[in-house]
Design a protein around this nucleic acid. Structure first.
Lengths: 220, 220
DNA sequence: TCGAGTCGATCGATCGATCGATAGGTTGCT
DNA sequence: AGCAACCTATCGATCGATCGATCGACTCGA
C-alpha cells in the first residue's frame, strides 16, 4: 500500500538524515511516488513526523503498562522495563531515533501531546523506583535523577545497536538489566540481585506488541 | 569581537533549533550582522559546526587526560570522569547538545576527525573500567557495554539540566558519580563505595579548563 | 594607500506546498 | 444494461519563499 510505503520511507530518511535535512522530494523519491502524491495522504511534512512519534511512544507506553500489570515486585518491574526499552530501541531503531532526536522539530499542540506521552512513560519508571525504595529493595539517593540516568542509558542503545554487532540483542538486554539493578543497588538478603535471580516470565519482551518499525525489521 | 559573536550566535541557534533548521540569515540576525559578513569569517555553514564540535570535544578530552594524570585508582578516575563529563555538559549545555546531536550534519573528512576524537575519549573510559576490573574493584560483565551505558547516562544531563532546576549542579554531579560507582559495583573490603569514600581532590572539576560556552554561561 | 570589515543586491538551486488534469473504479439512477 | 456522477489515486507543472553562497562597492583606521 502506498500510504505505508510513504511512512516507511519517511521513517528511514528522518532516522538517517534528520527531519529538517529531509525534503519532501527525498521522501517521494524513496517511496517511489511524486511529491504531489504525498499530499494526498498527508497535510504537511510535520504530520508524518507526528505520526511516527505518536505510534512509537504509544506502543512503548502500552507495552510498559502491560508489564506493570503482569509483575509486582519492583526489581522484576525494573528489569522488565529495561528489557522492554532496550529491545524496542534495538528492534525498532529507526522509530526510536526519530522519537529521541526529532522532538525539536515539533510545533504547537502536537509538541504538547508528545511531551505528555513521554512524561507519562517517565512517571511509570518513577513509580517503580519509588516502590523499590519504599520496599527497601533499592538504594537510591534521588529517584528523579536515577530515572533520568536509567532512561538515558537505555535509550542510547538505539544509537549504536546493530544486529551484526559483537553482542546479541539478548545479551545486551540482559546485561543492561543487570547494570540497572546494580545502579539502584537492588538487594535481597544483603546480596546484589541480577536478572537471573528474578525468574522473570520467559522472556520479558514476550509482552511486546507489534511495533511500527518491527515489521520493517522483519522484511528487510 | 565580531567573530566570537558569530560563533556564540551559531552555538545558541544550533543547540536550540538544530544545524539544518538554522539558516545563515538566522545566524546573521542573532549575531547582529548581515549574512555577507558571516562569510568574511567562515567558508561554509558547516565550518561553524565543525569549529564548535572540535572545540568542545578537544576541551573535554584535554580535561579528561589531566584527570588521568592526577588520579591513579580506577574508582577515583571513574568518579572524576563522571563529574567532569556531567559538569561540562551542564555548564556548557549548548556545546554539549550540538556535539551530541548534530554529528549527522558532518560530511567528509571532518566527520572522520570528529569520530576519532570521540573514540579517543571513549577509549579512556574503557581503560578505566578495565583497570578497575583487573584490580578487582569493579564487577562488570561487559566493559564495552558498560562504557556505552555510563557515557550515555552522563551525556543526557545536557538535555535536562537547568541552573534553576530543583538540584544544584554539585548535587547532580555527586549523585551521578555515586550511580556510576554503583553501576560498576565498585567495592572496597566488600562494601559498596560512594564518592565520599574516595577523598577526591576538592572538587574534581578543579581540573576543568575554560570552555567555549562556559564564558557564555558566566555572562548570561 | 591599502587591507580588514561590512554592506546591499543578487545568484541559481531548492524548499514545502498547491494547482488543474487525468485515468480508473464504484455507485446510483433509469 | 447503459450512462452519468462521483471518488480515489496519481501525475506534471508551477507557485512564492527561502536556501547557501558570491559579488562588487563602500568605509575607515593604520
Amino acid at each position: 500500500m502506498t500510504k505505508e510505503k510513504i511512512f516507511q520511507a519517511a521513517l528511514r530518511l528522518f532516522a538517517r538524515k534528520g527531519f529538517e535535512a529531509t525534503s519532501i522530494r527525498d521522501i517521494a523519491l524513496e517511496a517511489e511516488v511524486t511529491s504531489s502524491t504525498l499530499y494526498h495522504y498527508m497535510k504537511t511534512k510535520e504530520d508524518l513526523l507526528v505520526a511516527i512519534m505518536q505510534e512509537g511512544l504509544q506502543t512503548l507506553l502500552g507495552n510498559a503498562k502491560e508489564v506493570l500489570a503482569e509483575l509486582e515486585a519492583p526489581e522484576q518491574q525494573l528489569a522488565a522495563f529495561v528489557q522492554l526499552h532496550v529491545t524496542s530501541h534495538a528492534i525498532d531503531k529507526l522509530t526510536a531515533l526519530v522519537v529521541d532526536t526529532e522532538f525539536r522539530a515539533l510545533t504547537g499542540n502536537t509538541r504538547v501531546e508528545i511531551v505528555r506521552l513521554r512524561s507519562e512513560y517517565e512517571l511509570l519508571w518513577q513509580r517503580i523506583l519509588t516502590g523499590g525504595l519504599e520496599g527497601g529493595v533499592f538504594t537510591i539517593e534521588n529517584t528523579k535523577l536515577a530515572v533520568l540516568a536509567l532512561l538515558q542509558m537505555c535509550t542510547g542503545v538505539a544509537h549504536w545497536y546493530s544486529p551484526d554487532g559483537p553482542n546479541s540483542l539478548e545479551e545486551i538486554s540482559l546485561n543492561f538489566s543487570d547494570m540497572a539493578l546494580a545502579l539502584v543497588q537492588a538487594k535481597r538478603n544483603g546480596k546484589q540481585l541480577t536478572v537471573s535471580d528474578l525468574d522473570l516470565p520467559e522472556p520479558a519482551r514476550f509482552f511486546m506488541k507489534p511495533w511500527l518499525g518491527a515489521a520493517a525489521h522483519e522484511h528487510s
